[in-house]
Structures are given as C-alpha cells and as structure tokens.
Simulated assay, not measured.
Amino acid sequence: MTADTPQVFTGITQAQYAKLIEKARAAGMVINGNNGRASRMGVELEWNYCEEKQELVLTCLKTPFFVSAQDVNAKLHALVNETLRA
C-alpha cells in the first residue's frame, strides 16, 4: 500500500469513531469533525467518516523520507482494528 491509497473501514459506530479521535489526539494528531486533513512530524493524513454508512476512510497523503507510507498505513490499520475489538 502506498501513500494516497485509501484504507476503508466499515462498521465504525459513532462511539468507536470518538475513541479513534481520542487516540489520535493522544498521539498528537488533531482530528476535528467527520472529514479533513491533519499533519504531524511530516505525516499528513486525510479522513472521511460517514456516520450513516458507518464507514471511515483514512488516506496517508504524505510521509517524511525516513518513514514509509506502508508503515504509516500499517499503524493506522492496527489502531483501527484495536479500537474495534475493544
């Protein structure tokens, strides 16, 4: 998976999305609202959450030269899956 390859997660309730926002903020990535862009330390992300579809789309748009998009995408995937299991 490369930068700009969206990851689509389904079955995300509003409560689970709120937990994901909390985790992102704790990590220093400020996410506000159901869609937008945020960046931290050279990593730029885009998100779009649709409450009606219970769908979250996360896209890694940019990474610094020392971090691969695959690593960022793997972390995002793990974070979402961990939150869904909780």
Score class of each variant (00 low, 15 high):
Thr2Leu: 13
Asp4Gly: 02
Asp4His: 09
Pro6His: 09
Gln7Cys: 08
Val8Gly: 02
Thr10Met: 04
Thr10Trp: 04
Thr10Ile: 10
Gln14Gly: 06
Gln16Ile: 07
Leu20Thr: 05
Lys23Thr: 00
Ala24His: 08
Ala24Leu: 11
Arg25His: 12
Gly28Phe: 05
Gly28Asp: 06
Met29Ala: 08
Asn32Gly: 04
Asn32Ile: 12
Asn32Phe: 07
Asn34Met: 01
Asn34Pro: 02
Asn35Thr: 12
Asn35Arg: 04
Arg37Tyr: 09
Ala38Arg: 07
Ala38Ile: 05
Ala38Lys: 07
Ser39Met: 10
Arg40His: 12
Arg40Tyr: 09
Gly42Thr: 13
Gly42Asn: 13
Trp47Asn: 01
Trp47Pro: 01
Asn48Tyr: 10
Tyr49Glu: 08
Glu52Cys: 07
Leu56His: 01
Leu56Ser: 07
Val57Arg: 04
Val57Trp: 05
Val57Asn: 07
Leu58Cys: 06
Thr59Glu: 06
Cys60Thr: 15
Leu61Ala: 01
Phe65Gly: 10
Phe66Lys: 03
Val67Tyr: 09
Val67Asp: 02
Ala69Ile: 12
Gln70Val: 15
Asp71Pro: 00
Asp71Met: 15
Val72Lys: 01
Asn73Tyr: 05
Asn73Thr: 11
Asn73His: 01
Leu76Lys: 08
Leu76Phe: 10
Leu76Glu: 04
Leu79Lys: 03
Asn81Asp: 14
Asn81Gln: 11
Glu82Tyr: 01
Glu82Leu: 03
Leu84Met: 15
Leu84Tyr: 00
Ala86Lys: 04
